[in-house]
Computed example of a mutant assay.
Amino acid sequence: MPVTVLFAARPDRWAHYEAPLRSALDATGLDYDLRTEAAPETVDYIVYAPNSAVRDFTPYTRLKAVLNLWAGVEGVVGNDTLTVPLTRMVDDEGLGQGMVEYVTGHVLRHHLGMDAHIVNPENRWDASPPPLSRDRPVAILGFGALGQACARQLVSLGFPVRSWSRSGHEQDGVESFSGADGIDAALSGAQIVVLLLPDTPATRGVLNARTLALTARGAAIVNPGRGPLIDDAALIAALDSGQIGHATLDVFRTEPLPQDDPYWTHPKVTVTPHIASETRPDSASRVIAENVRRGEAGEPLLHLVDRGAGY
């Protein structure tokens, strides 16, 4: 009997994923049936995006695992009807490379003060050079696979990098912190802060009036992680006071960002429309196929979600 794999995402994504998924599943040697519709009781695996129509997993009585296409699982991890293993997209090399490029680009942009030269309506001639990267401390909040990849690139460019995470991952060249007190140490005097935390009850509002005040005056915030990580009112107040010099924000509590949101018009905010990185069908399909192969072989699944931690 073939392994039935249901693709449950927005209909427009099927055209992008069908060929890569078939190619990746072919490479496993499994007898499989990949489809966008199937009787629930026949489905073994669901390739899932939380914006799909599938909300109730109860009818999927043969289900072995749900394989999330996104790194974020906040839209599904709390679903009480989902009792089988849930994985998330972590090792998709396209997702990781895209995040490294976004973070590195905007860290360098803020480090070099490029905005002042790109938009200079008064034709000011300011020959003050920026400091060297070694004098620009960067704090990365969230040190999973994406945070570690970004840190490696920034360390290679000479930035002193600190990290903060729940688990306290360590990496050569990075000063690592964890726990409630660790965030204060990571942020203290940081001139650039990068947010790569998941959206969980423990991380919401992690950048607030108290923690923003720990950074160096005029620090830059780069958030390609999750919108709820920031207390929006506190950030705007910090921008207005000069405690924060600029914020580049790619994710928001409501998306698309409403047209009347103050972030659009704030002179110290750059809005990017959730483009920091995205799962690439080719590389993501290889991760999905490998997990199907592992599931059928009785091997541990890759990137299993910790339901208690929320990611």
Rank of each mutant, 00 (worst) to 15 (best):
M1T: 12
P20V: 02
R22L: 04
S23Y: 05
A24E: 06
A24C: 07
T28K: 02
T28V: 08
P40I: 09
T42K: 12
V43L: 02
V43H: 01
V43I: 03
D44V: 01
V47I: 14
V47Y: 08
N51A: 14
A53W: 14
T61V: 15
L63W: 14
L69I: 12
G72F: 05
V73E: 07
V76G: 06
V77L: 07
T83P: 11
V84C: 13
M99K: 00
M99L: 15
E101R: 14
Y102R: 07
T104H: 13
V107P: 10
V107F: 05
D115I: 07
N120T: 10
P121D: 11
W125D: 14
D126P: 06
P130Y: 08
S133H: 10
D135E: 14
V138T: 10
I140M: 07
L141Q: 09
G142Y: 09
F143Q: 08
A145T: 10
Q148N: 08
A149Y: 03
Q153K: 15
G158N: 04
G158Q: 05
W164Y: 11
W164V: 05
Q171E: 14
D172V: 12
G173F: 10
G173L: 09
S176G: 04
S178A: 14
S178L: 08
A185D: 13
A186S: 06
P198L: 02
P198N: 04
A202S: 14
V206I: 15
L207D: 00
A209M: 02
R210E: 02
L212R: 00
A213P: 00
L214M: 03
L214S: 00
A216C: 03
G227F: 00
D232E: 15
A234M: 00
L235Q: 04
L235V: 13
L235R: 03
L239V: 01
G242C: 10
Q243E: 03
L249A: 02
D250Q: 04
D261F: 02
H266M: 01
H266N: 08
K268C: 01
T272P: 12
H274G: 15
A276G: 12
T279I: 12
E290S: 11
E290H: 08
A297G: 05
L301R: 11
L304T: 14
G308D: 12
Y311C: 05
